[in-house]
Amino acid sequence: MAGFFAKLKEGLTKTRQNFVEKVEQVFTGRKKIDEDLYEELEEVLIRSDVGVTTSFELVERLRKEVKQRKLSEPSELTQVLQELIAELLGEEVQLNIAEQGPSIILIVGVNGVGKTTTIGKLANRFKNEGKRVILAAGDTFRAAAIDQLEVWGERCGVEVIKQKEGADPAAVAYDAVQAAKSRNIDVVIVDTAGRLHNKVNLMEELRKVKRVIEREIPGAPQEVLLVLDATTGQNALQQAKLFQEVAGVTGIVLTKLDGTAKGGVVLGIQGETRIPVKWIGIGEGMDDLRPFVPKDFAAALFGRADEEGER
């Protein structure tokens, strides 16, 4: 199909060259399935930003499948590996949206990963679905962050709740929740600061923001989405582990997948943190942030063209 799957497939070209083509070289360069093949495959996976733990896990799963299926030809392994990767990535996981009242989505992540852009694109998507949206400028430590969010607010036609630079982020979240309740808003997207140099401060700040939100709307926030930059490879995996520890992350948004050779990090993130990747970004356009569909990703990664239809 044309459309998003074709764009995803094109966007994963460098990852395919860095990952799948090297994997296929391991399989086609040998006449039998032996220990050397498994060791070489492990090496390729680790070098492709899949991560050590997940690479070991994939190779072990492959060994089991080879025995169970009684395979003897290395050329048969590419299809099996694609199946194992799709299995590792799991099923598509939708965003958790409240049945009644406002849904609060907390956005976390370090600076420079595309947080503000992600917020703008999510807001635009919700608005196009007919939902009433407001944004909360909770990254009060950088005036630029507030300004950037306002630019996106204007672009999408949604209001931005803000206070002055240096204000308490929890106070901004409180104002946004109050505005949502009084104006019958469907979705509130809350930006947060991305400072990593002091983990304790970050943890306390996020806990306070979440506490304030939950006090005003029991069961909220419905989502804590971590934004990661795919081009940083293993750094993205380390950030996922840290934020999982400090923020209670419920889902991941992986940006900048187009044009990077490090898309294999999706497997490492999923394999080591078990946090579902819920959205991916594969371009600059407003519609280039889409729900993550694992089977489509696996098929696009391996250059297959058997997808069912546009999303």
Rank of each mutant, 00 (worst) to 15 (best):
K295P: 10
T192E: 01
Q94A: 15
R47I: 10
N128P: 03
V80K: 01
R155N: 03
I189D: 02
G259Q: 05
L81R: 06
A137K: 04
F141E: 09
A300H: 06
V108G: 00
E99A: 05
A236V: 04
W279N: 15
L202K: 01
P294W: 07
K256S: 07
G157Q: 00
V160F: 05
V172Q: 13
D49Q: 05
Q234I: 03
M286E: 13
L62E: 00
P276H: 11
I189T: 04
A171T: 00
R155Q: 07
G90S: 06
G29R: 02
T231N: 10
K127S: 14
F5L: 09
E76L: 06
A179W: 05
L81E: 06
T255I: 06
R125D: 13
F27K: 00
L202I: 08
E60Q: 13
Q79M: 10
D139R: 05
V59E: 01
K241Q: 14
G309D: 13
A261T: 02
A220Q: 10
G281H: 11
E216F: 12
R211H: 14
D287K: 15
E204G: 12
V93Y: 10
V253A: 12
E310G: 11
V110Y: 08
K64M: 12
P291R: 10
S182D: 12
V187D: 09
E43L: 04
E10F: 05
E154W: 11
T273E: 04
E10W: 06
E91C: 08
K208C: 03
V209L: 09
A176W: 04
Q94P: 14
I280M: 14
V52N: 05
V253H: 06
K181F: 02
V50K: 01
A144Y: 07
I134S: 08
N235P: 07
V190F: 07
G157T: 11
D287E: 15
T273R: 00
T260K: 05
M286Y: 13
L206H: 00
